[in-house]
Design a binder for these strands. Sequence first.
RNA 1: GGAGCAGUACUCAAGCGGCUGAAGAGGUGCCCCUGCUAAGGGCAUAGACCGGGAAACUGGUGCGAGGGUUCAAAUCCCUCCUGCUCCGCCA
Length: 425
Amino acid sequence: MLDIKFVRKNPDLVKENIKKKFQDHKLGLVDEALSLDVSLREAKLEADTLRAKRNNASASIGTLMREKKIDEANKMKSEVVEINKKLEKLEQDEESFNQKLKKIMMTIPNIIDDSVPIGKDDSENVEVKRYLEPKVPSFDIPYHLDIIEKVNGIDLDSARKVSGNGFYYLMGNIARLHSAVISYARDFMIDKGFTYCIPPFMIRSEVVTGVMSFAEMDAMMYKIEGEDLYLIGTSEHSMIGKFIDTINDKTKLPYTLTSYSPCFRKEKGAHGIEERGIYRIHQFEKQEMIVVCEPEDSASWFEKLYNHTVDLFVSMEIPVRSLECCSGDLADLKVKSIDVEAWSPRQKKYFEVGSCSNLGDAQARRLGIRIKDDQGNYFAHTLNNTVVAPPRMLIALLENHLREDGSINVPKVLRPYMGNIEVIK
RNA sequence: GGAGCAGUACUCAAGCGGCUGAAGAGGUGCCCCUGCUAAGGGCAUAGACCGGGAAACUGGUGCGAGGGUUCAAAUCCCUCCUGCUCCGCCA
């Protein structure tokens, strides 16, 4: 969400940015917002003047009553009643202008970073760099589910019976591998100086509507019946929620947090649940990182964040690449975004295992996350990035560490978390 | 989950319909006094958000949140949230 003052001063820049994102249908919104802004300020000025009159009149009624000048007081009272009648309409206008303006401002995209490549959709995303050589072994790599089933690592039949499609029982060493990845990722991030955090897994509707749009909410969030609570779709929800409406002491920044949580998603719409496997499911676990920092530091944090994910995967000997989101594929709130993709030797292509975003001050403005110094206060910048989401990343791990006999090599860094097992058979 | 009490500025706290945008105390800052220390005196100290104005300045909102009653709400009523105490129930 942009600052309306910024739009007032730079309408052309805002329009230019919309064009860069190939959302020309939104161009009209800029002028619409500006004219609503004018109407809103006019209504506000008029209403404020009336409110000032009312405050004065009410104060003098008090004085008159004390002096027992009842008649005069009653006369004033009826004046105030008149003012209130006029105000009623004006206040409605104020409210409706404000709502409309806010709604439009929510859909005007954030100004993207100059470095973001221009492109229409995800087909024009740009590979930034590859890490480790993407190898294809001489033997065939089976579908990930088959790999896991061969080592008795999953029970989908029971999960379907107990919870339905989109759930799984991870079993034995695969379950252990899953936990090992989470534990390793946690320690990896702690070593990078992040503060480990286990957040609430349910959040109030107030927070939900703060951190996402209604459409997203409908497509993703599970509601707890009879409670004003939703299961989180990612720990980012609780982690950013932690900072809603806060004024943060400049000296305490940056906040660099890494959080663990299960994630619950309806996955309604677009893709749906895959029939076979653990690529897209209703419940998974994720280690996340978020940063709340000074505006001038967000660009450098962005670089650090996605590189942490890259380093983590490289340390597990999984080839990855960084892929920059082009302008057209970039979500409206984001200034810049890079996906980390892992190599799939089966599909002979990379697939997404993490996503790193710099939101600039857009999220902070929307949620009221501010920084205070002796000059005053201003909006923080926020960033978030996946450290690792094991069920999905397990696909990459299994495919890249599969041996010809169907056993799975445990990456060295994970062995301490696996009772020093070297191979899963 | 039940019962009771509470939520006011950096902190504690008074106020319980108009004279309160908020007494008082502490803290903090500046100044004075004191050989040093302990102590004392004076002055200042609501941040935030949204408007208007070239500016000086000025209007509005704001006493946990949201509604309501009233000419007028920190103050009365309702809902919710949070904290504390007791009971119940549990890892």
